[in-house]
């Protein structure tokens, strides 16, 4: 379902950098209902690769395909619509809004794009996700009154709200204890794949790799940051 070919991304050169950095990624393919882990050391380009797959960034060479759609060839507006309707995103630092309740944070994508209307179906879906992720009793609380793990779950629920066909998660289990990490990852993978989504998770925790169908290792010889 998701595939890339010849993907390259040249970073904008900073004022004190003598040579430009370029991400060169080997081709990958992830089918619906399957999972892929992207591993590698900090700074290797895991987050950049995820943003290329999400259509947040446009590759300088190569392409990202999702089914019949050439994501990298879409216009800005089309890529935004693709993200909101097709992709679920779970960010590394949760990126929750302090001034919204847990429920409103989960429903936030509906307030950002007209293609995803905020209706009763979405509200029911948000409550259902909160229940399944064990934060059902916390939906009226502001995020700053939640524990680290609870905030993580809110971010996961937000990513799953629109029943995405592709879920991209960047270090979704960071800062959790080993038991907590595994439990949250299993819940995330189960919830996403139950709906038939392809799941790609960036992580530097090799202990979690057994949960995935495939592993994309940046340390391998054919993927590099040049």
């Amino acid at each position: 379902m998701l595939s890339t070919s010849g993907l390259r991304y040249r970073y904008r050169q900073g004022p004190y950098e003598s040579t430009p950095f370029e991400l060169v990624a080997r081709d990958l393919a992830v089918a619906a209902g399957t999972t892929l882990a992207i591993v590698g050391p900090s700074g290797c380009g895991k987050s950049t690769l995820l943003s290329l797959l999400a259509g947040e960034r446009v590759p300088t060479a190569g392409e990202v395909r999702f089914g019949d759609v050439r994501v990298s060839a879409l216009s800005d507006a089309e890529r935004r619509r693709f993200r909101i309707m097709t992709v679920g995103l779970v960010f590394q630092e949760f990126r929750l809004l302090d001034y919204l309740s847990v429920l409103d944070n989960i429903l936030l994508p509906c307030r950002l794009h007209p293609a995803l209307p905020l209706d009763d179906r979405m509200r029911r879906r948000a409550h259902d996700l909160a229940e399944r992720l064990g934060i059902g009793a916390l939906v009226t609380r502001p995020p700053q009154r939640l524990s680290h793990g609870e905030r993580q779950r809110v971010a996961v629920a937000r990513g799953l709200l629109a029943k995405p066909k592709l879920l991209l998660a960047d270090e979704p289990t960071g800062n959790l204890d080993p038991v907590g990490k595994r439990r949250l990852l299993d819940e995330l993978l189960a919830l996403a794949t139950d709906d038939g989504a392809a799941v790609i998770v960036a992580t530097h925790d090799h202990g979690l790799l057994s949960a995935f169908h495939q592993v994309y290792d940046f340390a391998a010889a054919d993927a590099e940051v040049a």
Partner: peptide, 16 residues
């Protein structure tokens, strides 16, 4: 900035 960037990453237009 972080909050507004998050909105854009989720799919909001810069106009939004």
């Amino acid at each position: 900035r972080d909050e507004l960037t998050t909105m854009v990453r989720l799919g909001a237009a810069r106009g939004t």
